[in-house]
Computed example of a mutant assay.
Amino acid sequence: MSTPPTWFASPADAAARLGESGYLADAATATTAYLAGALEKPLLLEGPAGVGKTELAKAVARATGADLVRLQCYEGLDEARALYEWNYKKQLLRIQAANAGGGPEGGGVDWDATHDDIFSDEFLLTRPLLTAIRREEPTVLLIDEVDKTDIEVEGLLLEVLSDFQVTIPELGTVTATRRPFVVLTSNASRELSEAVKRRCLYLHLDYPDAAREHEILQQQVPDLDDRIAEQVVATVARLRELELKKAPSIAESVDWARTLIALEIRDLDSTAIRDTLSAVLKHKSDHERAVKELKLNRA
């Protein structure tokens, strides 16, 4: 039996290489990323939107030189969009061509031969799950926002998550020759099944503490003045304490910092916060609540 590929040599190696790729991983994240590769188990990332779940999968791909295959989940996602489907139009054309070229008396060709022909790889349209399973190159499979799908879709994932294989009735079982690094993300809008959770390593990602968010801002917005960075981190932390429809994520913090640089704002006072709040809050009710709670009304 061949030795499975090593994604990271150690948790420290994972932290260092993810950092070089632009993702600042804390100890828990680096350790779990290392274990997901070493144990060849899918990694389930759960937490609020915008804390870096999807970005972690992208960072693993960048850090390891792997290709990223992404399945974006949504309500109504089905097997044809997640696993595979047959190219029915092409199959029909082949059947018509086979019948047209029948025997000398115009009879059709043998159906078994035609069946074996049209249910072959030539007529198979692979979707993200099957694509990732069939690849021989290092691959990161991102199953993004799995909580947005119907619960029935989780059944489609079990075979992939357990055995890294897909069963196609007409062709048989396709087993991964090189297991992908699988990352599932969830915003916890609904509870995932225990069957899915059992097959995964689990990591909850939350908003970073002030020191780490400051470090992220310095990395992502290198031109940002250190004093402004501290003000952004402190103000975002205050906003997250409010009962908002959508609390600002790390991405919004970065956008806000870039906005302040573009406007050449060197002090995040009440006027500056009020005038640039739209870069951070994306709902009218949240904007109004922040203005009220932070006392940002114009004098």
Results as ranks from 00 to 15, higher is better:
101 G>T: 11
128 P>G: 03
135 R>P: 01
121 D>I: 06
134 R>Q: 15
101 G>K: 12
167 T>W: 01
148 K>V: 04
136 E>R: 15
105 E>N: 12
162 S>C: 08
126 T>S: 14
117 D>A: 10
144 D>L: 08
144 D>K: 06
156 L>N: 00
136 E>L: 11
98 A>E: 11
142 L>F: 08
106 G>S: 01
136 E>A: 11
136 E>S: 13
95 I>F: 10
161 L>Y: 07
111 W>E: 12
133 I>H: 05
94 R>C: 07
130 L>T: 01
102 G>V: 05
137 E>G: 07
169 P>T: 03
148 K>W: 01
156 L>A: 00
132 A>G: 03
114 T>D: 04
101 G>Q: 14
101 G>W: 07
107 G>H: 12
99 N>S: 11
127 R>L: 03
161 L>I: 10
104 P>L: 13
106 G>P: 06
131 T>R: 14
110 D>P: 01
144 D>M: 05
157 L>F: 02
169 P>H: 09
104 P>T: 09
114 T>S: 10
154 E>F: 04
128 P>K: 06
126 T>E: 15
116 D>N: 14
148 K>R: 15
131 T>E: 15
115 H>E: 11
157 L>S: 03
116 D>S: 13
157 L>N: 00
132 A>V: 05
150 D>M: 09
164 F>N: 06
143 I>T: 03
113 A>E: 13
163 D>L: 06
133 I>R: 06
154 E>D: 03
150 D>L: 08
147 D>Q: 05
164 F>A: 09
150 D>Y: 08
118 I>W: 05
127 R>C: 04
169 P>K: 08
117 D>E: 15
124 L>R: 07
168 I>S: 04
158 L>F: 10
130 L>Q: 00
93 L>M: 12
94 R>I: 04
106 G>Q: 06
141 L>P: 00
151 I>K: 14
159 E>C: 01
138 P>N: 10
168 I>H: 05
134 R>M: 13
155 G>S: 11
101 G>N: 15
163 D>Q: 10
170 E>W: 04
133 I>P: 00
140 V>W: 06
101 G>D: 12
155 G>H: 11
136 E>C: 05
92 L>G: 08
106 G>F: 05
117 D>G: 06
145 E>W: 03
119 F>L: 06
136 E>N: 11
136 E>V: 07
98 A>N: 05
170 E>M: 09
109 V>M: 10
163 D>G: 14
166 V>R: 05
150 D>T: 14
110 D>W: 07
97 A>E: 14
146 V>N: 03
170 E>I: 03
117 D>H: 09
131 T>M: 12
165 Q>D: 00
102 G>R: 02
100 A>I: 00
157 L>K: 08
159 E>Y: 01
158 L>A: 03
